[in-house]
Design a protein around this nucleic acid. Structure first.
Length: 504
RNA sequence: GCUCCAUUCGUCCAGAGGCCCAGGACGUAGCCCUCUCAAGGCUAAGACACGGGUUCGAAUCCCGUAUGGAGCACCA
């Protein structure tokens, strides 16, 4: 399916409401808009939809900006960067919405309604009790001038509602979903301007998209049911519509319901899957992996290629091949992709990214050691944070030995293990060039002498030296920690084994 | 309940009437490699929801059914 070539300058926007950190689904919406604008050499804007005073969160904007920047989604117009169509925060544009709401009333396309929220709730309760579809009964649509005056004199503040046609159909176009039609009878006289003078989303986004010259609106499919209202609004204003593209939702990994932070999804092992971007950021995911992953659900790169650079994706992201069906969140693939991107990093780059999780775990990170360790963990971690468990011991101020049972390998006992460590100690003491290959060649011959296999000998040395049963490779590790420390740890292990032998 | 949308392996994606007894990836299983854990290599199991059309021919077009999802606020 080919996508219609844009006939005007491409301008897309991401328009979140600042109510907390960014939802991962929100980032996907932002990413699609961003890629689309970049593909066509257009502009990508960030607009803040803060028209709900009851949900105001002063920190949310900063949090949101952090997540966007982390993911590399730079905007050409919006908060902190400005632009010629600002302000880009809706609460700073109230006069505009009021002006156009009043214009609609003057044109008889909208009308004031004076019910209180309580009255409306009662109306709905009654309707549901009588098994009728809930909705506004339009009783103020035809108010006379004196009825209005009476309500006003009671001190009631009206909302402004759209005057939806009572019959006929509204046919809408969507570049992802195709043609969608709605019977006007099923539509509501939706509120455009609230009693507090703030616009609802419906009014605000149409006005803003018009004045900000938005060419393509990509948003979550949650909005599809209100598309006819928006369509009618554009027509009431007599403005040219942008092209709408409704993106599928990301469902829980089990496919049941959309991802929500209030009901956190769990993976097959019962672990909670984060929904908010800040959790991904602090859990050791790479931005390039997250962005790759997000571009890969709801859209695909093509040519059976799954691992790609976002710049290459931009070249292909022309608006076609966006999936219309909602999809379960493929978490396992995210982990795999993160591992793939970790492996693609230059070792020093990886080292730099490993510092934060290590320090967050309370470790003191030496730069030289870090650079030596990075290549050793590169194929062994999927998320950055896993470095702590795998190689945290390199940075511990004090060595904590493993329990003796862990040092003793399969089919061995304490005495035999201690003997093997003594011989190894002897041999290692004579090695001056403490490097991986030399160490390996010095120790390897001991297997025949001691009647052990590589797994047993190298294994007991590993546990003695690292204090862990799962670790970076034995000889590489010895090289990094150095001769003195290696010998000292072996001595410690021997004494622990001896003590255990005496007591046991 | 009503409205709208969707429906290819467990999951994410290929597939725009013959190239498909359906391809890739994740995951799963087995083997190889191997000092642990990984990584890597090889192999395997695994899907066109169902029923009607249209057509010489349908995963692909149309209509129903079923299932899933989204929405039905002075929230976005």
């Amino acid at each position: 399916m080919s996508f219609p070539t844009p006939t005007r300058p491409v301008r897309t926007r991401f328009a979140p409401s600042p109510t907390g950190s960014l939802h991962i689904g929100g980032l996907r919406t932002a990413l699609f808009n961003w890629m689309f604008a970049r593909h066509y050499g257009g502009k990508f804007l960030l607009r803040i939809e803060d028209t709900d005073q009851t949900r105001f969160d002063p920190n949310a904007l900063q949090t949101l900006i952090e997540a966007m920047r982390w993911a590399g989604l730079t905007w050409d117009e919006g908060p902190e960067v400005g632009g010629e169509y600002g302000p880009y925060v809706q609460s700073e544009r109230l006069a505009l919405y009021q002006e156009w709401a009043n214009w609609l009333v003057a044109q008889d396309k909208a009308y004031p309604a004076y019910e209180t929220p309580d009255e409306l709730k009662r109306m709905r309760d009654e309707q549901t009790a009588r098994k009728l579809p809930p909705g506004y009964n339009r009783q103020h649509r035809t108010l006379s001038a004196e009825e209005r005056a009476r309500f006003e004199s009671e001190g009631r503040k009206p909302v402004i509602r759209l005057k939806v046609p009572l019959e006929g159909k509204t046919h809408c176009e969507d570049e992802v979903q195709g043609k969608v039609s709605f019977d006007n009878v099923d539509l509501q006289d939706t509120v455009l301007l609230k009693a507090d003078g703030f616009p609802t989303y419906h009014l605000a986004h149409v006005v803003d998209d018009y004045f900000m010259k938005i060419s393509h609106v990509m948003r979550a499919v949650e909005w599809l049911p209100s598309l006819p209202i928006h369509w009618l609004l554009w027509e009431a204003f007599g403005w040219d519509k942008p092209i709408y593209m409704h993106l599928p939702v990301m469902l829980n990994p089990n496919g049941q319901g959309k991802m929500s932070k209030r009901k956190p999804p769990v993976d097959s092992k019962g672990n909670i899957i984060p929904v908010m971007m800040h959790d991904y950021m602090k859990n050791g995911f790479l931005p390039e992996a997250v962005v790759n992953f997000l571009a890969n659900t709801g859209w695909s790169f093509g040519d059976d290629i799954e691992i790609f650079d976002i710049a290459d994706a931009v070249k292909r992201f022309d608006g076609s091949r966006i999936i219309a069906a909602s999809a379960a969140f493929p978490v396992d693939k995210l982990h795999w992709l993160n591992g793939e991107h970790v492996r693609r990093l230059a070792p020093d780059d990886l080292a730099g990214r490993l510092r934060a999780p290590l320090e967050a775990a309370g470790l003191h990170v030496d730069e030289t050691v870090l650079r030596q360790v990075a290549p050793l963990v590169q194929t062994r971690i999927k998320t950055l944070n896993e470095v702590v468990g795998m190689a945290g011991f390199f940075f511990k101020a004090e060595f904590s030995p493993a329990p003796v049972e862990a040092i003793i390998q399969k089919k061995m006992d304490a005495a035999g293990t201690a003997a093997a460590l003594r011989r190894s100690h002897e041999v290692l003491s004579g090695v001056d060039d403490f490097t991986t290959q030399v160490l390996h060649d010095a120790i390897q011959p001991l297997t025949t002498e001691l009647g052990l296999n590589n797994s047993q000998l190298f294994g007991l040395l590993r546990v003695a030296v690292t204090g862990q049963t799962i670790s970076t490779p034995t000889f590489e590790t010895m090289e990094v920690i150095g001769k003195a420390e290696t010998l000292q740890r072996i001595e410690l292990a021997i004494s622990l084994l001896d003590a255990a032998g005496v007591n046991g």
